[in-house]
Amino acid sequence: MVKIKVVVCIKQVPGTTDIHIDPQTNTLVREGVENIINPFDNYALEEGVRLKEKSEEISQTVALTMGPPQAEQILKDALSVGMDEAVLLSDREFAGADTWATAVTLAAAVKKIGDAGLVIFGKQTLDGDTGQVGPEFAQRMHMPFIGYVSKICKLDRKSIQAERLMEHGYEIIEAQLPAAISVVKDINEPRVPSLRGKMKAKKMEIPVWDRHHIGLDAEQVGLSGSFTQVVKVFTPQSKHEVMMLEGSTAEQVEKLFGKLKQLNVVQGA
């Protein structure tokens, strides 16, 4: 049996969620916002690098992203923290992709990369917040999927055992490889790139694949390949004014108690 590759799927996002519309000009305020690696994906990258460091079973780690040509930067960042290879999926026809079209595109690329035993995602992205691409990707690849992984207990060429964080506590689940997982922040502490890592990343050429490289039809990618469509984007109305409860501590607490009583949370005089 051949050694496995670990593929980590990452996304470039605006470096803040503090994005809002200026009510006067109706324009977007995003001054000084840089594009960064989706913060959740740093845990996915770190886990990929650690798995390779620990295990003889892994031949290579590959960082994969879909995005505009500028997204090359986050792949450089991924290489600088220790990923072996990187691939950029970039094509104007990928534009407008929903989670399904994204999953289809990533799946085609992972197939082309070949020998992927484990595919790691961050739990969700900072901008889209959906967390849907991982499970949809896994289904497209007919792989098992373990979401919200907080610890990889065991990984060999055949199987993975991982601890996942569910609503009511932790569960330890085992699945056969190839498999896909999404990881939460608890899993590790991402490293800072070393100077040597940065130098190495700078020199490396990153291949750019378009739709034709991964053998997809125009109807399968971008908006054409998407089932859902955004029809409106807007900022929520700020709902209220805060009511400050003033006075001495005793008076403040008394007022708060009154409010909690109105809300039926507490009882008493």
């Binding site: 969620t17 994005i19 917040d129 409106k232 900022t235 929520p236």
Partner: peptide, 8 residues
């Protein structure tokens, strides 16, 4: 965007 933008 962490709740700062809504999309329909």
């Amino acid at each position: 965007f962490g709740g700062n933008v809504l999309a329909t």
